[in-house]
Each structure stands twice: as C-alpha cells, then as structure tokens.
Computed example of a mutant assay.
Amino acid sequence: MTVKKDINPFLKQVLELGPPLAFFFIYLRLRDDSFLIGGIEYSGFIIATIIFVPLMLGAMGILWYLTGKLSRMQIFTAIMVIFFGGLTAWFNDERFFKMKTTLVYGLFALILGIGLMQKKSYLAYVLDEMLPMKHEGWMILTRRLCACFTVLAAANEFVWRTMSTDLWVKIETFGFPIALMAFLMLQFSILQRYMDDPEQK
C-alpha cells in the first residue's frame, strides 16, 4: 500500500509548473536556431520538445518520491507527452507535439462525456476524497468541465493551425492553464452550496 507523504506546497508547484515554464524559456532561447544531429536538421522547437520530456519525467519522479503518489491525470499526461514528444522527434515534425494538447483535452472531455451518458461523474471518482461534494454538484461540475475541455481542445486546434508557433507556445504555457484554473475557481465558487460539511456527518 502506497504511503502518502506531505510536501511543501511551494515545492509541489515548482515540480508541477517548472517543466512547462522550462520548455517556454528553452524555446525562446532556441527558436531561431537549427541543429544538425546525425545528418538531420532539427528546429529549436523540436530540440526544446526533446529536452522537455525528460525534464517533465524527472520532475514527476521527484514528486512521486516525495509524496508517494501520482494522480491519474498526471500519469495520463506523462504518457501523452512521451508519446507525442517521441513522434515529434522521430518524424522531425512539430505538429505532433502541438496536437498533443488537443488530444489530451479531447480525451478528458470524451471520458467525462461517457460518464455523463451513464449518469455518473468520473470526476467525482478521481477527486471525491479531496473535495467532498454532493452527487448533484459533481454532475453539474462534470457537465461544465466536459464542455470546457471541448472548447479548449477546439481552441488549441484553431491556434496551432492558424497562428505562429511563438503564439502557440505562449498560449499553451500560460493561456490554456490560466483559463482552466479561472474556470475551475469560478465553478467551485458557484457550486459552494453543494459542498459536504464533514462536521455534519
């Protein structure tokens, strides 16, 4: 049985947010450069992606060592990053890494949608211990988050297909996470009346 361990909240944030920020700054440093490796020319974006994958895995390894656990979402995201980061490097095509965001958000929306069709909240299955809430509240939040992930997936497709790589990197690093965080904070505020009070149990 895995033992959960406490961790400094600031250190946890550094380990979770550090790799994406590192990717952003590495890309800014390398975006105008090209690199010849094994007779193949790689852009700065490709090299930044190749560097990002082990950075993220290293941060997750440290987080797992310090806390004794990783969330299902973290594991799923890591698998997607490894897979699409590998395709990006193998085919020397930045489009694979850009599509990764669409598929991550899209799969989250699909999974939540399947649960909704079964009149279940898979979100509650993942977060219920952390955030006790009545079933009705979980269903409302799940419907709204399903819609949010769908919009984010569509937005990513629009951004990477119609805008510059520079702009995509900025929106990927800051825009989408901030939008999702703001959405969640707003929902938790609105759904406060559905929260369970442990003292009443």
Rank of each mutant, 00 (worst) to 15 (best):
G137T: 13
I75W: 00
A59H: 07
M185F: 09
M1K: 10
V81M: 15
D128Q: 09
C148D: 03
T142I: 12
T102K: 00
L36N: 15
G106Q: 04
L167V: 11
I37M: 08
C148V: 07
Q192V: 11
W168D: 12
P20K: 09
A155H: 14
I7Q: 08
M1W: 07
P177Y: 14
I46Q: 12
T67K: 11
R143T: 13
N92M: 05
T102R: 02
L55K: 11
V104E: 05
Y27D: 14
L127M: 12
Q192L: 03
K120V: 02
L66C: 01
R31H: 10
I37R: 09
W138V: 02
F108T: 12
T67N: 05
V81R: 14
T162R: 05
L131S: 12
T142M: 07
A109N: 07
M80R: 12
R95M: 15
V104Y: 01
W138A: 01
V53K: 06
V3A: 08
E16C: 10
A22L: 04
W90D: 05
R143E: 11
D93L: 15
A182R: 08
E157A: 04
L141G: 09
F24W: 15
E94A: 09
Q200R: 13
A59T: 03
G18I: 05
D166P: 10
D93N: 15
F174D: 11
I114Q: 04
L28G: 04
K5S: 01
G113W: 07
T142K: 06
A78L: 06
G175W: 07
L141C: 02
Q118C: 05
T77R: 03
T165A: 09
I51A: 10
V104D: 06
E94R: 11
F24K: 14
W160L: 06
F183D: 02
G61F: 02
M73A: 00
I111Y: 13
V104Q: 05
I46E: 09
L123D: 04
D32A: 10
F24N: 13
Y122K: 07
L21W: 02
E157R: 02
Q187R: 05
L87A: 01
L55G: 04
A78K: 02
L11T: 07
F108G: 09
A78I: 06
Y42G: 00
V126P: 11
S34T: 14
E41S: 15
C146T: 10
A182G: 15
G68L: 13
I50H: 01
I111Q: 05
A179D: 06
M195N: 10
L191S: 11
M1P: 14
F188E: 08
V151C: 10
A109V: 09
F84K: 02
W64I: 00
E129F: 06
